[in-house]
Design a protein around this nucleic acid. Structure first.
Length: 608
DNA sequence: CCCCCCCC
């Protein structure tokens, strides 16, 4: 039985041998496992698989190029499958030999037993049964050329109008997957799947400019950066969608926290870097892994995903100021819909927001957008995200046909319409609310960022002390606190103006409760005025007038009422104690009729 | 050498 497999291959690759040129050994897969690197779990990038491969005598670890993932997802290969390797590459990382599978034929998709009694090649190397060649030799070019390279730009002099090279020492062609800092003679042939704007930076360490591109080939993807001079050299040359030979650049360890491209490493262009255009169409086009709009509900906040849909709404360009950097950012929201009947908001930033000018309901494919939880689910573009307007792909054609015939007149279910940020006349569903207990259990507001949630609660008690502050009377809405200057006027630091009288505004502190818990929340002017039914300034005057009973009546009258509160929870330190500050952004009167109808519907469904 | 991906 063991003669089914090509004994000797694993030892040759992982141990002391050299696999024969163009070897296409038959091997058995002993296991396939998804690699859950910390980064991929949260960033939602393409999965990466590792397989244990046996030749009947030894087994060793292999990585699968990501374009083979569908074979695993569809179970075409699984434990005990038998494959005939067509192309692969090897790589040494930190003293360990790594085999990367690029292409293979499936001889037996389903096979029900392990062939032979293969032992771990790493153990054999460790205990000296098998000797290992110096690691340097392992940094070899692919042992077998991946097929499908029209023009055949393999190692050595290029054929078929490929690489010029110009006598430069550029090294053999490598799959992106096999690049590592431990080798320096390599060339990749890759398509630019994304290209950033030029970014200028300035910090304590200096200033400069840079741009990023993402390269992809049949094996994987890698991010590359050109700083300063290299930014000048290569920015115009590299175009999104085109294919290039890239060589003589530095490979660095990628800082995954800043990089959503699925590679442990990244490329830094250097002075010596050679980049040449290539017209090889066989290098794969951008691959999408689309989620339907309604499937976004299944993803986590901060996941990355690809989405395709019809742009149903384009909102005006606006500007927001980043809390972190105080810098303004251009922003534009659009709404995306698809056949699921679900709509989602997608936010464009910067140049992409400014230059977006498609008001004719185009189909757009987005790659690498970030999932947010604002209003249930929302999407936001990264600078590394790409969008392709009316792409010539099946999904786009299907969407076009659907939208033009039926979709255009569909009532869409919007994530945003039923939750925080919705229009005033629609109430949130009960299942979209958080109880106060849940908000606390989930530690909302305990992270660096502000959390938003909606809760249904009863006002238990409103503090009548310190219910307001004297605010700047500037009619432009400064609203900043003013201080009495001793001459009978009130001074605003921000406006640098003196006012004979301030205008009082609310900072109302109230205790709210539901069936799970209670919390203290702060309501500012608009919300508080709605709850108390009087402006802060009038209430202040009432208090100054000395009618304590009437003054108090506003507070007691407002207690005991139910509201749907749109809340924000944010970390705050007060007297060196870290706590969560809950602020009410909006208070709505619950639609009890709609809630009852919804509940009876749920009960009916439950009883089926 | 950047590394922010923002706002409600």
């Amino acid at each position: 039985m063991a003669d089914l497999l090509d004994v000797g291959f694993i030892q040759a690759v992982f141990g002391d041998g050299e696999a024969p040129e163009g070897a296409s050994p038959v091997l058995q897969i002993l296991s396939v496992k998804k690699i859950n690197s910390a980064s991929s779990a949260s960033s939602g990038v393409v999965d990466r698989y590792r397989a244990i491969l046996s030749d009947g005598e030894y087994f060793g670890q292999a990585m699968l190029a990501v374009n083979l993932n569908p074979l695993i997802d569809s179970k075409e290969i699984d434990k005990f499958s038998i494959i005939k390797l067509r192309s692969y590459t090897t790589n040494a990382v930190q003293g360990r030999r790594l085999l990367i599978l690029l292409e293979f034929d499936i001889l037996e998709s389903v096979y029900n037993e392990k062939i032979g009694e293969a032992v771990n090649i790493e153990h054999a190397v460790a205990n000296g049964t098998v000797s290992r060649a110096p690691a340097g030799n392992a940094n070899a070019a692919p042992k077998a050329e991946p097929k499908g390279r029209a023009g055949g730009a393999g190692p050595g002099p290029a054929r078929g109008g490929a690489r010029q090279g110009g006598g430069k020492d550029v090294g053999p062609l490598f799959p992106i997957e096999s690049l590592s800092p431990y080798q320096n003679k390599w060339t990749i042939k890759a398509r630019v799947s994304a290209k950033s704007e030029i970014k200028h930076w300035s910090n304590q360490r200096g200033d400069g400019k840079l741009f990023n591109v993402t390269f992809m080939d049949e094996s994987g993807e890698i991010r590359a950066t050109g700083f300063n001079e290299q930014c000048d050299n290569f920015y115009d040359l590299l175009e999104e969608g085109k294919v290039y030979f890239v060589s003589r650049a530095r490979i660095n360890i990628a800082k995954k926290q800043f990089n959503n491209v699925n590679n442990e490493y990244e490329i830094a262009f250097e002075r010596e870097t050679a980049i040449e255009p290539c017209d090889d169409a066989s290098v794969p086009q951008i691959k999408y892994n689309f989620k339907r709009v309604d499937e976004l509900a299944d993803l986590n906040k901060d996941d990355m995903c690809d989405i395709i849909g019809v742009v149903r709404e384009v909102h005006d360009l606006s500007s927001v100021t980043s809390k972190a950097t105080q810098k303004p950012f251009a922003k534009r929201d659009i709404q995306i819909v698809d056949q699921s009947g679900q709509a989602v908001r997608l936010t464009l930033w910067g140049k992409q927001a400014e230059s977006f000018a498609h008001d004719d309901s185009p189909v757009i494919a987005f790659k690498g957008v970030k999932v947010g939880d604002f209003g249930g689910r929302s999407l936001s573009m990264f600078s590394s995200a790409t969008m392709s307007v009316n792409p010539d792909i099946n999904e786009a054609h299907a969407l076009r046909g659907w939208y033009d015939s039926a979709g255009r007149n569909t009532q869409f279910n919007a994530y945003t319409s039923t939750m925080a940020g919705r229009s005033d006349n629609s109430a949130p569903r009960l299942n979209e609310l958080k109880t106060i207990g849940e908000a606390k259990d989930e530690n909302l507001g305990m992270r660096d960022k502000t959390d938003y949630f909606t809760t249904a609660a009863v006002v238990a008690f409103i503090k009548s002390e310190n219910f307001s502050y004297p605010a700047c009377a500037n009619p432009d809405g400064c609203n900043k606190k003013v201080i009495e200057d001793g001459n009978g006027t009130y001074v605003c630091d921000k406006c640098d103006k003196h006012w004979p009288e301030p205008i009082h505004r609310y900072i109302l502190s109230m205790n709210c409760m539901d069936h799970t818990s209670s919390f203290w929340i702060t309501a500012f002017n608009e919300v508080a005025e709605k709850l108390l039914g009087i402006s802060a300034n009038d209430l202040w005057k009432l208090k100054e007038g000395g009618d304590e009973q009437q003054f108090q009546s506003y507070f007691t009258k407002a207690a005991g009422r139910s509201y749907t509160f749109e809340m924000m929870a944010k970390q705050d330190s007060y007297n060196e104690q870290v706590r969560v500050r809950y602020t009410c952004r909006k208070a709505g009167i619950p639609d009890f009729v709609a809630e009852s109808a919804y509940l009876s519907q749920q009960i009916a469904l439950f009883n089926i």
